[in-house]
Design a binder for these strands. Sequence first.
DNA 1: CAGGGAGTCTCATATCTTGAGAAGCTTTAT
DNA 2: ATAAAGCTTCTCAAGATATGAGACTCCCTG
Lengths: 271, 271
Amino acid sequence: MRDAAPQGTYKVQALDRAFAVLDLLGESDTPLGLAQVASSLQLHKSTAHRFLMVLERHRMVERTSNGKFRLGLRLFDFGNRAIEQYDLRDRAQPHLRRLVAETEETAHLCILEAARVIYLDKIEPARSVRMITRIGASNPVHCTSVGKAILAFLSPERAAEVVRRIRFERLTQRTIATPDALRVEMEKTHRRGYAVDDEELEEGLRCIAVPLLDAQRQPVAAVSISGPSFRVTAQKLPAIANHLLQCVRGISVDMGYVSGSRGNRAVGWTA
Amino acid sequence: MRDAAPQGTYKVQALDRAFAVLDLLGESDTPLGLAQVASSLQLHKSTAHRFLMVLERHRMVERTSNGKFRLGLRLFDFGNRAIEQYDLRDRAQPHLRRLVAETEETAHLCILEAARVIYLDKIEPARSVRMITRIGASNPVHCTSVGKAILAFLSPERAAEVVRRIRFERLTQRTIATPDALRVEMEKTHRRGYAVDDEELEEGLRCIAVPLLDAQRQPVAAVSISGPSFRVTAQKLPAIANHLLQCVRGISVDMGYVSGSRGNRAVGWTA
DNA sequence: CAGGGAGTCTCATATCTTGAGAAGCTTTAT
DNA sequence: ATAAAGCTTCTCAAGATATGAGACTCCCTG
């Protein structure tokens, strides 16, 4: 089992334990009873009990009608405040909607965090196969189009830093498996202006992404379109890339990253 | 100042403090330095420092480039897991979109929590004045249409329980200010089948809501349409109510609360 | 009705957090 | 330049605080 390693010089046992409880409840897709929590985390039942009561008081967990525990809505509140401070999501949403309307495939908005990309938002077309991504979840950089899009436009130092942290897991046959292969792919991506994930994360899924650059031209996020390989074909990629570029340009203007009126394109290349 | 009262029989000081830190960072719309956190919460700077370091390790807070602290994205992850367990939001979204398209006003999806309603989702029409509500935030039951919609369809015992907890703050001239006035309003709402907030929360804002009933016919949420009073006029209310009813019926079907094929209307009344 | 499992509660003990203060570090003022 | 103030990081001894054994209660199940 994964076990939130409490390494690090600073320690507050109570916090590590509390977050372990939240983690456990978050992983589980069914509410858990006190006994289950206590034994899973190797806590004495009375300790687990006290934690749960305190967490409940803070509405970090709540009890279902049959007395079991699950995550509380306070977390939802906090979560929304956390991304609000970015407020990227709100501003991007209308642009993503338009993008989805144009392409009729699922769009994602992601940011980089350590060596993973976090899904800030997802918009799905009206009648599409539901994708399994969850907003708030994360994936490794090296096997997603969004990850590669951001990575390819980072400064060499920061990119190297990120690459160093990657654990090159193989998720499909095509997953990039070595730092060198990734570097080659990054060059290609940078030249082309958009990143492609060709069934590298999941069989049958193809994605294409472009980075969103801030005023300093640093990538702060990426927008992608994902769909089944048979619909998102190789020939369509350039056209989709164009829609993506228009989309990020719109977002850039909204965020005040670029002057707007002038045709200041977000990425320095021509379609 | 609000000060998360650590009353209650069970206590874990460290947790109360940690959540106070998160609270503080959540309230502030600009990142805070260690010294500010320490003094605001009356913690010793070294204590505050330790907490922040531990919270950072858990990605509950993160540091901006200039070393200040703000809420971390782990919270966003947790928050999404918390409502996923409801999964009401995902299923409701397409229906809310349609509703917004039909009415061209802002739609909200809310649930009841203690004596407040929490905004689970908000969809805004393409070109509208931005409303100030924030997803994840909450408002008192008695001065919102969603609150009243849920309250009016709760069992008398549970409704009484909720009413008992309300602190009747006056937010505008028209805010309902007494339990009795609220009870009268509830009867009216129940009879009519939809709830109206006529500038009771905010001057110039009119809202209308209907409850979403689960398989046991208990209200689990409410959907509302809100807009400036001059657009959401009294004459339009019945028409909007109809759209709302269609919307919640669709959600009910999606959630598996009602059989779907049959014209099993969510609320027992005719428009 | 007995037995087992799950949750709640109390209290003495020792573990874990606490906070004073010293030392680094950065920014601002003179 | 240099001083001074302000903010952050780190160490360690003292003692407040969380801990967990265990008793008690309440269901459920057989």
